[in-house]
Protein backbone atom coordinates (compact mmCIF):
# COMPACT_ATOMS: atom_id res chain seq x y z
CA UNK A 1 0.00 0.00 0.00
CA UNK A 2 2.93 2.29 -0.20
CA UNK A 3 2.58 5.24 -2.48
CA UNK A 4 4.09 8.52 -3.53
CA UNK A 5 4.12 11.27 -0.97
CA UNK A 6 1.66 13.59 -2.60
CA UNK A 7 -1.07 15.00 -0.46
CA UNK A 8 -0.72 14.55 3.25
CA UNK A 9 -4.10 15.18 4.77
CA UNK A 10 -2.86 15.36 8.36
CA UNK A 11 -0.55 18.09 7.29
CA UNK A 12 -2.34 21.31 6.54
CA UNK A 13 0.77 23.26 5.54
CA UNK A 14 2.04 20.54 3.23
CA UNK A 15 3.45 22.46 0.32
CA UNK A 16 4.94 19.92 -1.99
CA UNK A 17 6.91 22.28 -4.18
CA UNK A 18 9.26 19.85 -5.92
CA UNK A 19 9.98 16.18 -6.37
CA UNK A 20 13.51 15.15 -5.40
CA UNK A 21 14.61 11.74 -6.64
CA UNK A 22 17.22 9.36 -5.29
CA UNK A 23 20.10 10.75 -7.34
CA UNK A 24 19.37 14.45 -6.84
CA UNK A 25 19.06 14.19 -3.07
CA UNK A 26 22.19 15.27 -1.24
CA UNK A 27 21.60 14.99 2.54
CA UNK A 28 24.07 17.74 3.46
CA UNK A 29 21.72 18.99 6.19
CA UNK A 30 21.79 15.55 7.79
CA UNK A 31 25.58 15.57 7.75
CA UNK A 32 25.51 19.00 9.41
CA UNK A 33 23.11 17.91 12.16
CA UNK A 34 24.85 14.60 12.85
CA UNK A 35 28.17 16.47 12.84
CA UNK A 36 26.86 18.85 15.50
CA UNK A 37 25.61 15.90 17.55
CA UNK A 38 29.03 14.28 17.25
CA UNK A 39 30.73 17.44 18.50
CA UNK A 40 28.31 17.60 21.45
CA UNK A 41 29.15 13.98 22.30
CA UNK A 42 32.88 14.69 22.15
CA UNK A 43 32.46 17.75 24.36
CA UNK A 44 30.38 15.80 26.88
CA UNK A 45 32.90 13.02 26.88
CA UNK A 46 35.64 15.44 27.93
CA UNK A 47 33.30 17.15 30.35
CA UNK A 48 32.57 13.79 31.98
CA UNK A 49 36.24 13.43 32.82
CA UNK A 50 36.08 16.59 34.89
CA UNK A 51 32.72 15.86 36.49
CA UNK A 52 33.34 12.26 37.40
CA UNK A 53 37.01 11.51 37.69
CA UNK A 54 38.33 14.74 39.06
CA UNK A 55 35.26 15.19 41.26
CA UNK A 56 35.48 11.75 42.87
CA UNK A 57 37.93 9.36 44.42
CA UNK A 58 39.80 6.94 42.15
CA UNK A 59 37.83 4.08 40.69
CA UNK A 60 39.00 0.59 41.55
CA UNK A 61 38.83 -1.90 38.70
CA UNK A 62 39.90 -5.47 39.31
CA UNK A 63 42.33 -4.59 42.08
CA UNK A 64 44.21 -2.20 39.85
CA UNK A 65 44.13 1.33 41.16
CA UNK A 66 43.37 3.92 38.57
CA UNK A 67 45.46 6.80 39.78
CA UNK A 68 46.00 8.58 36.50
CA UNK A 69 42.91 10.68 37.00
CA UNK A 70 44.07 12.22 40.24
CA UNK A 71 47.77 11.81 39.78
CA UNK A 72 47.99 10.17 43.21
CA UNK A 73 48.90 6.64 44.05
CA UNK A 74 46.88 5.03 46.81
CA UNK A 75 48.33 2.51 49.15
Amino acid sequence: MSQTAEHEASNETSEHVREIGHDEFDPIGTLTLIGIYFLILVFLWFFMYFVEFLGNDPTVVSGTLVFLATGERLA
Binding site: E15, H16, V17, F25, P27, G29, T30, T32
Partner: peptide
Protein backbone atom coordinates in the same frame (compact mmCIF):
# COMPACT_ATOMS: atom_id res chain seq x y z
CA UNK B 1 21.25 9.12 10.02
CA UNK B 2 18.45 7.44 8.05
CA UNK B 3 15.61 9.10 9.90
CA UNK B 4 17.13 12.59 9.77
CA UNK B 5 17.95 12.13 6.06
CA UNK B 6 14.34 11.10 5.40
CA UNK B 7 13.07 14.17 7.24
CA UNK B 8 15.48 16.33 5.28
CA UNK B 9 14.18 14.82 2.04
CA UNK B 10 10.67 15.84 3.07
CA UNK B 11 11.80 19.31 4.08
CA UNK B 12 13.61 19.90 0.77
CA UNK B 13 10.60 18.69 -1.19
CA UNK B 14 8.60 21.23 0.77
CA UNK B 15 10.98 23.96 -0.35
CA UNK B 16 13.52 23.89 2.48
CA UNK B 17 17.06 25.08 1.73
CA UNK B 18 20.45 25.59 3.37
CA UNK B 19 22.54 23.57 5.80
CA UNK B 20 20.07 23.98 8.66
Amino acid sequence: FTVVASMEHGARQRGGTGYL
